[in-house]
Nucleic acid binder design. Sequence first.
DNA 1: TGGAGAGATCGACGGCTATCGATGGAATGC
DNA 2: GCATTCCATCGATAGCCGTCGATCTCTCCA
Lengths: 116, 116
Amino acid sequence: MLRLMKSSLPDRVKGVCSPPAMPMALAKVDQSVEVLKALADPTRLQMIGILKRSAEPVCICDFTAAFDLSQPTISHHMAKLREAGLVDVSKAGIWAYYRLASRLEPKTRALLDVLV
Amino acid sequence: MLRLMKSSLPDRVKGVCSPPAMPMALAKVDQSVEVLKALADPTRLQMIGILKRSAEPVCICDFTAAFDLSQPTISHHMAKLREAGLVDVSKAGIWAYYRLASRLEPKTRALLDVLV
DNA sequence: TGGAGAGATCGACGGCTATCGATGGAATGC
DNA sequence: GCATTCCATCGATAGCCGTCGATCTCTCCA
């Protein structure tokens, strides 16, 4: 053990310093990545911010009006948020109202609390 | 104003329910999106998890050994984390040791605390 | 000084994604 | 019934991204 002074570098065998450890479960990682991918877009992150701050469900037409983007693009982004389980939709007549999902995982909820 | 009972839908003019609000500053959104993009990948998220749990800096060769990916790909992922300001690198001889950035924004730190 | 190993960079390729215009389906109102 | 409006979906396109092999740079050591 008295290997001091030889060098400040750790002992190592070819190509590996220490046995690698994979601390996170694969399924957890994929689940987190799905949510992160959904949030890693300026439009969608702002959508989530608006929904989180709104007490009432928001008509998707308001997003179409707010975000200088075409209606299909807005619909596409909201679908991404839907597929990630971040928002719920309710139809009322010809209108679609979106709100933050009521059944969010605690971890996801905490994520949104930090972000927006 | 006594428009009650006519319908449960809100009043609206053509195409817009309520004046749209943009609650988040544009710069903040872009900054968050950059970090989210860096984390929205299974390999990189696991890298961050390993670094966050490690008291010592980790040699990048360990990641190359751990993640069934080529050496250039591992280097590419670590560069992404570097560019996002999430990790610091220190060279020691021919080896490169990575660790979680010491000067993380509180918001980013909180994000990592939730994620990993 | 020259060989060997570690890691970053380059160039290329395939797949994913953001965006749009066009279309379709459903509900409303005339 | 029919036109209108809202919204989702489709098809196409351009740009970004993850991945790899090849190469380059740097350091160490014999």
